[in-house]
């Protein structure tokens, strides 16, 4: 088992290198970092040149990537353009945890800029995962056990609609219903903007209240997709020979469903859930934009607009690491659930 985990981690590392190379190449045309740094003040051509050299933008892309990865504090940088390096660089490189300084929030490490936003996105993700997993298990198992009933057909249709919903449409629609219409009808209505009401302050209750609609918007698509998937997986498992054996033993139905069937059905479900984190994170971008949620997704959009490469690249890499780590965790959970792998 330990060997298996090590093996998976070792597989993840080259993958992350691949990802970083792809992203780095794409970053090459993301706008003008010098202009972003200069802000509104018109920068003289000489200053531009100096900044360019300072940022290492005069070097070929391979060297730039290498500096990004491993830093340039071990080599002399040519700042005045005479071809001779005079001062050591200051960057430590991503491998040593240095993603560079944000160009927008000058002087602030990119990682710190991102770090402020991570918890906000994280609570959205965790809440959404919980809603998705618990909700889809409930719905999926129920409709599998009541196959072809009216409720089952109803749920199937509903999940097709949910699965086809663009997130922004879910968000806008739910805002309209639960905020606008509920307010109009004099019902208690939900807030739609930000993380808390500034007049009340950032209390847990406020954050939870403000989370409801964003979490709903992020969850609907996956909830719908997993419900269907769990339904079909459960149906398939319920038709297996070992379920018939369990019935032949005279076990009561709940024991058959929740121990014999669900434990087997959870294997493919775990895999699917593990693979879908990218989708969820993508959903967060749109959701955070609509609900003005101060998370990583919104930070990403804001800083992409302004060409803040270190922050953009930092977010993308952190997300990729999260995705890879989540997949490894999934594999471990899978192996832990499936004795054929655990003892294989």
């Amino acid at each position: 088992m330990t060997r298996y985990i090590l093996h998976r981690i070792l597989q993840g590392i080259p993958l992350l290198f691949f990802i970083s190379i792809i992203l780095f190449v794409l970053m090459m045309n993301m706008g003008d970092p010098i202009a972003t740094m200069g802000g509104r003040t018109a920068t003289r051509p000489a200053d531009r040149e100096r900044l360019k050299r300072q940022l290492g933008l005069d070097k070929p892309i391979v060297v730039q990537y290498f500096y990004w990865l491993a830093g340039n504090d071990w080599t002399k940088i040519d700042l005045d353009g005479d071809g001779i390096g005079e001062t050591y660089g200051e960057r430590k490189g991503v491998l040593r945890g240095d993603f560079g300084y944000s160009l927008v929030n000058r002087g602030k490490p990119a990682l710190a800029v991102i770090g402020e936003r991570i918890p906000n996105t994280l609570i959205l993700m965790v809440a959404a995962e919980l809603v998705i997993i618990l909700g889809s298990l409930l719905v999926g198992v129920y409709s599998a056990l009541h196959q072809y009933s009216f409720t089952d057909h109803f749920i199937t249709t509903l999940s097709f609609i949910g699965y086809s919903m663009p997130i922004f449409f879910i968000a806008l629609l739910s805002m309209y219903i639960f905020a606008v219409l509920f307010k109009r009808w004099g019902l208690p209505y939900l807030p739609t903007v930000g993380m808390f009401d500034p007049q009340v302050g950032k209390t847990a209750g406020q954050v939870i209240l403000h989370m409801i609609l964003p979490v709903l918007s992020i969850s609907v698509i996956s909830l719908a997709a997993y419900s269907r998937y769990i339904r079909s997986t459960m149906l398939e498992v319920m038709n297996q020979d070992y379920i018939r054996t369990a019935k032949a033993k005279g076990l009561p139905r709940p024991q058959i469903v929740y121990i014999h069937a669900l434990k087997n059905a959870s294997l493919p479900i775990v895999t699917v859930i593990g693979l879908d984190l990218p989708l969820l994170l993508g959903g967060a971008v749109v959701t955070e934009r609509i609900f003005a949620w101060p998370g990583m997704g919104r930070l990403f959009l804001d800083h992409v607009e302004r060409g803040d490469l270190p922050v953009v690249m930092g977010i993308l890499m952190l997300i990729s690491v999260a995705v890879v780590v989540f997949q490894i965790l999934t594999d471990i959970v899978y192996a832990w659930l499936d004795p054929r792998i655990r003892f294989g």
Binding site: M30, L279, G282, V285
Partner: peptide, 17 residues
């Protein structure tokens, strides 16, 4: 590697690119 980068992020970056 491409699959691991969430599609929306990739789309945004490419749109800028």
């Amino acid at each position: 590697a491409m699959l691991n980068i969430p599609e929306i992020f990739l789309l945004i970056v490419m749109a800028k690119f």
